[in-house]
Write a protein that binds this DNA or RNA. Structure first.
Length: 463
RNA sequence: CGCCAGAUGGCAGAGUGACGAUGCGACGGUCUGCAAAACCGUUCAACGCCGGUUUGACUCCGGCUCUGGCGUCCA
């Protein structure tokens, strides 16, 4: 049975959907003012694995991942670039979809945009105001009154006193309490705005997720996820909004993934130490990146360096080598149930244990070794299990000829040239002219191409 | 200052109250014309520090040190 770590209880607990076999999950997605970086990729891949694993476990999953397409940073960026907001967000959304497709991240069931749900947000704010949980300040902004919501702080494990003690809370003369947060921002000249009972303006950041999750998943659903930095204040505020408005539980399981780090610092746009996915994809195959991310547990910090990506690439190549070398064995043997074999059970146990992907990956290596030692079904099981993680779905021969996980420059006709050299070398070998044969091997090796002689033929791959 | 998380072998990274995950790298062997891949073996291997509980602790408890995150936009 699946067990998940719940931020709300700080424990790993059995996962029990509210309405099995349905599972409803919501994940906070991207704010689209820039390209996705590797940290975003980690979050998106982690929840993609959860999505896949829930489905593989027999659940019918409704997965909602929102897009924030209106906020300060978007407005600033658009202004800075002299670009209309919708053009900027449209561009970034298209880019994100490309990046995610490359990473083999499945599209969610719904991918709502904040700007399409302003009506729902206004309805929610009205409810909060009617319940005296929201008030309008003299500046026209509508605030959430934190002190009037009893459970405030339960997700982040903080009390209002703890929070007030922090000196980093900005003073705002229009708030009743420094911790109150904005639900509706009154319109400023030149900014996008929508009409509302409180005057024209635009939504605060947190309200969109309360409105959109309710729209697609209802007032009470199973799983809500996001990056660890969203735990406070974003998710805490979502709870305040949704539970405040509806008077009952909002989300059963809260999940937060750990950060990707660079030089032991969080990778973030603010720190400017980020690598965009597309930058990395210039050098490494996206599957290497996915594999790298899955080798660590989603809640642990993961440190990025080029060297670690290279390690991951070598490991992935070990798996692809098993697929390539044992290609013919694949079609042999009848159908059987992967989940009943030892590897399948171990794999399932690993993912059921709070998505222990490193352990699951270890099972994959075990299968690769078994396959090499002659276990007939091992290769098929390897492919089947890896698919659950979104791995090993490329043709192994193409994988190795394309670059074996690296992005390499290839000239047109490269392949023909290589094949021709291999033929030449073979001719030399036939006359036992090993000096010439080795010379050709060395020449190809110098450009990163490794020749492997086996069973009377020679195959090649990129190193 | 408050709250939270973490400290594992050359590197990455799981896990467990007693039995040496896994990967990468390195070394030796088998195989090969030579290689590569694979297989076999080695790396005499590690659990931040100090106490405690226990027959037994890397694992549980307490303290300490250090690191990171959150408390402000952030996946």
């Amino acid at each position: 049975m699946l067990q998940l770590f719940n931020t709300l209880t700080r424990r790993v607990e059995p996962f029990q959907p509210i309405h099995p076999p349905q599972v409803r999950m919501y994940v906070c997605g991207m704010t689209v003012y820039d390209h996705c970086h590797l940290g975003h990729g980690r979050m998106l891949v982690n929840f993609d694995v959860l999505y896949r694993w829930l489905q593989a476990s027999g659940y019918t999953v409704t997965y909602v991942r929102n897009i924030t397409d209106i906020d300060d940073k978007i407005i600033d960026r658009a202004a800075q670039q002299g670009e209309p907001i919708e053009q900027l967000t449209g561009r970034m959304i298209a880019a994100m979809h490309q990046d995610l497709a490359q990473l083999a991240v499945l599209p969610p069931t719904h991918e709502p945009r904040a700007t399409e749900h302003v009506a729902g947000m206004l309805a929610l704010i009205a409810t909060l105001e009617a319940k005296n949980l929201a008030y309008q300040g003299l500046n026209g902004d509508v605030y959430y009154s934190v002190r009037d919501f009893p459970g405030y702080g339960k997700l982040s494990g903080k009390t209002l006193e703890d929070l007030r003690a922090g000196e980093r809370v900005a003073r705002d003369a229009f708030k009743r309490d420094p911790l109150d947060f904005v639900l509706w921002k009154s319109a400023k000249p030149g900014e996008p705005q929508w009409p509302s009972p409180w005057g024209p303006g635009r939504p605060g950041w947190h309200i969109e997720c309360s409105a959109m999750s309710e729209c697609f998943l209802g007032e009470h659903f199973d799983i809500h996820g996001g990056g660890h930095d969203l735990q406070f204040p974003h998710h805490e505020n979502e709870i305040a909004q949704s539970e405040g408005a509806h008077g009952h539980a909002f989300v059963n399981v809260w999940m937060h993934n750990g950060f990707l780090r660079v030089n032991d610092e969080k990778m973030s746009k603010s720190l400017g130490n980020f690598f965009t996915l597309r930058d990395i994809f210039q050098r490494f195959h996206p599957e290497v990146v996915r594999f790298f991310l899955l080798r660590g547990h989603y809640r642990s910090p993961l440190n990025y360096t080029d060297g670690h990506l290279e390690d991951a690439r070598q490991g992935l190549n070990t798996l692809y080598t098993a697929l390539r070398d044992l290609k013919e064995a694949a079609s042999e043997g009848g159908e059987d149930d992967v989940w009943s074999c030892a590897a399948g059970q171990a794999f399932k146990a690993a993912l059921d244990d709070d998505l222990n992907t490193p352990e699951a990956v270890a099972v994959l290596f075990g299968l690769a070794h078994e396959a090499h030692r002659g276990t007939r079904v091992a290769r098929r099981h390897l492919v089947r299990l890896a698919a659950v993680l979104g791995l090993l779905q490329h043709d192994p021969s193409v994988w190795f000829e394309d670059g074996a996980g690296l992005i390499v420059d290839r000239a047109d006709g490269d392949r023909d040239r290589i094949e021709a050299l291999i033929a030449q070398r073979q001719a030399a070998r036939d006359t036992r002219d090993f000096a010439t044969a080795d010379q050709i091997r060395q020449a190809l090796l110098a450009e990163g191409i490794v020749l492997e002689d086996k069973a009377g033929t020679t195959q090649w791959r990129r190193a």
